[in-house]
Design a protein around this nucleic acid. Structure first.
Lengths: 194, 194
DNA sequence: TTGCTCCTCACGTCACGTGAGGTGGC
DNA sequence: TTGCTCCTCACGTCACGTGAGGTGGC
């Protein structure tokens, strides 16, 4: 009935690599030309990308939408981000994983600015997260049933491999399937026939 | 390191509604103008859409890509689909949920046609499904950690509601958070600050 | 000078969404 | 005739991808 067209993108978590020689505790340094220590503690866009698993293009997009902002620019025009930006980008990423569009995320950010009180700001987030928690649990159930169907399909196809001796033609599959007595043919197998 | 840009769309399962007066066992009839019994057992595009939770536009797209095909057309040009098409569309849908693009699905369908033997056709599917099973299990783990972070964030924000008495300004949140002694501030909460 | 990273356009892509203008079928 | 469903273009959308052509910084 409802046309739920939500996309759910999942994060590649990319945790900080262990070596961390800096005193700033929220930023993992990467060795090389873009090292934050060479840019006075700031992160270049490539560093930010690596730390968050996003592309440079995506980060440019988030900036153009007002979701993040470089602390300043180098004299050559390079964006220099402060050390709390990775956390901000991860926040955007996780909200996307929860099915929010970038314009919905803009809305949340703008409401947060508009709210006078901390109480109403946190209450706004609370409402959203409670709803998303219910949705995520539904998605989890759907994924688990997909997992089960994959398991059933793999089992079924392995049985095919044993039954189909002597290289019969593909067109025979629809008849053959009726002879796997064990159980019903999974959608992932039956749908594969044109 | 790797830029995994997979989208995962989830299905709205839309199981057949119970009432089924037809003899065809794979199709649930919907009452009304589009009733398959009025079109000689065939399904109109709107029926197919309802049965699969897809839009008419999506079904047109799948046809243009050669993934499905109407059994015939009415004299007025209406597409008439046979009763096994819903299963085919659900197959497409589930492969999309597994992160396959429509052109990848085209590839699978074309290879299936090209394969001479049933054995090699099922072995092709088997390879794909085994890989997808591993991916789905990774996604499940990621979703579960998202769920946990949502739970932690909801708890945290509820604590905020109790701590923030007297309508302090939002800007105070970053200081306030340090006083919730219980645990670390979740990304979903800390990232919300600009 | 070399090599890597960055800059700003700006068009391309994927899976549809959304009308526009018209016709079929009971 | 009315109302619902369908038809075929064809442009729009969302979150980027992917060059093009040029410059910064060690």
């Amino acid at each position: 009935m409802s046309n739920d067209k939500r996309h759910l993108k999942l994060l590649s978590e990319e945790p900080c690599s262990a070596v961390d020689t800096s005193e700033v505790d929220d930023v993992c340094e990467t060795s090389g030309a873009g090292d934050a220590q060479l840019t006075g503690g700031y992160l270049q866009v490539g560093d930010l990308a690596k730390l968050t698993g996003k592309t440079v293009r995506a980060i440019h997009l988030y900036e153009s939408l007002g979701l993040i902002e470089p602390a300043k620019r180098s004299k050559g025009g390079y964006r220099l981000f402060s050390s709390d930006t990775p956390s901000r980008v991860r926040w955007i990423s996780k909200l996307q994983s929860l099915g929010l569009s970038l314009s919905e995320i803009q809305g949340i950010a703008e409401r947060r600015k508009a709210f006078g009180s901390a109480r109403s700001a946190s209450s706004d987030l609370l409402t959203i997260y409670e709803a998303k928690l219910r949705e995520v649990r539904e998605r989890l159930a759907e994924y688990q049933s997909l997992e089960q169907e994959l398991v059933a399909s793999v089992d079924f196809l392995k049985a095919c491999q044993h039954v189909c001796v002597g290289e019969p033609h593909v067109s025979g599959c629809s008849q053959c399937e009726r002879r796997h007595e064990e159980s019903r043919v999974p959608d992932l197998v039956s749908g594969a026939q044109a």
